[in-house]
């Protein structure tokens, strides 16, 4: 089945030059890739690998040294394409003297939205990013997480078909990170295409359908996340709790097939999952506090008076 491409990049190179036109840095070398409609695409790579340069070339903030870029069927420098694009920069480069309402109103006007549309969309977005309590405060008073949230809201003001997110989880706490990832998946469910670049691998793994890994400006890997992460050299079998005898029987059975058990342990959760679980439990039972085992009787935790200050 042929998929519709939202972004097409062919042999894209970018060389940064000095004042005299002499080459300074080659940020991208013959990059070619496509982004399909409706997928979440991740650009991965260490610092200086060319992720943000690619993003800025897609947005027309930089001009390619060679190669071609097509975004939503139009050249990257075409302003009309921006009608259907939402962009969240790495740092939320917003006007710090505006408050949240004024910010969204300003960006709504740039999309030629009517007053009624702007008000409705602003209310909707401020609620969805959880900034109702701070909507009248100037952005210079916002924390980094709050700034990311309002940045995300401005990126979605036009209900875009293509969302470009540069380090979307940067500066967010785990809760904010989870919200951001949920939102990315929600955007995907709505049929939108999301391109994100990040060096936080866990975030990318959780939400991306396909990824491209860049290193020193070159494309090193491209493919579906599940296919890329699948290892065919080992097999995982997860069972309920086994007794030592049962484990010995399993080992014996495996030995018949010339296989061996490499590791026997309990499955581990991720730190992120543990953190989220703890926060959720804290919200469900306020006042509960951790007590070291030597101080408590049998339980690890105990109910504390709510009168904590």
């Amino acid at each position: 089945m042929s998929q519709e491409n939202v972004i097409e990049i062919k042999n894209l190179s970018k060389i940064y030059r000095d004042f005299w036109g002499r080459p300074k840095v080659q940020a991208l070398k013959s990059l070619s890739l496509d982004v399909h409609k409706g997928e979440v695409f991740g650009l991965l790579g260490p610092n200086g690998s060319g992720k943000t340069t690619t993003m800025k070339l897609l947005l027309g903030l930089l001009f390619p040294s060679s190669g071609e870029i097509s975004v939503l069927g139009k050249p990257a420098v075409d302003v009309d394409k921006n009608e259907k694009i939402g962009y969240l920069p790495e740092e939320s480069y917003l006007y710090r003297f505006l408050n949240a309402d004024e910010t969204l109103d300003f960006y709504g006007r740039l999309f030629n939205m009517s007053k009624a549309q702007r008000v409705e969309r602003s209310n909707q977005l401020i609620e969805s990013v959880g900034l109702q309590h701070a909507r009248r405060r100037q952005l210079k008073e916002y924390s980094k997480g709050m700034t990311r949230r309002i940045g995300l809201a401005q990126a979605l003001i036009n209900n875009p078909d293509l969302v470009l997110l540069d380090e979307p989880t940067s500066g967010l706490d785990p809760l904010g990170t989870k919200d951001m990832k949920d939102l990315i998946l929600k955007l995907k469910d709505e049929g939108k295409t999301v391109v994100m670049c990040s060096h936080l691998l866990a975030d990318v793994e959780d939400v991306c359908d396909r990824i491209a890994i860049l290193y020193q400006g070159e494309l090193k890997t491209l493919g579906r996340v599940d296919q890329l992460l699948e290892s065919h050299e080992e097999t995982n079998i997860r069972t309920s709790q086994l007794s030592p005898e049962a484990i010995k029987d399993v080992e014996a059975a495996l030995a018949k097939h010339n296989a061996s058990v490499k590791r026997v342990d309990h499955p581990r959760t991720t730190l992120e999952e543990l953190f989220l679980k703890t926060v959720e439990e804290s919200q469900a039972r306020p006042g509960q506090r951790y007590v070291p085992p030597e101080q408590g009787a049998e339980a690890k935790t105990t109910e504390q008076p709510v009168a904590s200050k």
Binding site: L61, V79, N82, P89, E91, Y93, L110, F111, Q154, N158
Partner: peptide, 13 residues
């Protein structure tokens, strides 16, 4: 301050 970047990525001429 790069606030112009966020503006020019909108359909403003």
């Amino acid at each position: 301050l790069r606030s112009l970047h966020t503006v020019v990525t909108k359909p403003i001429r």
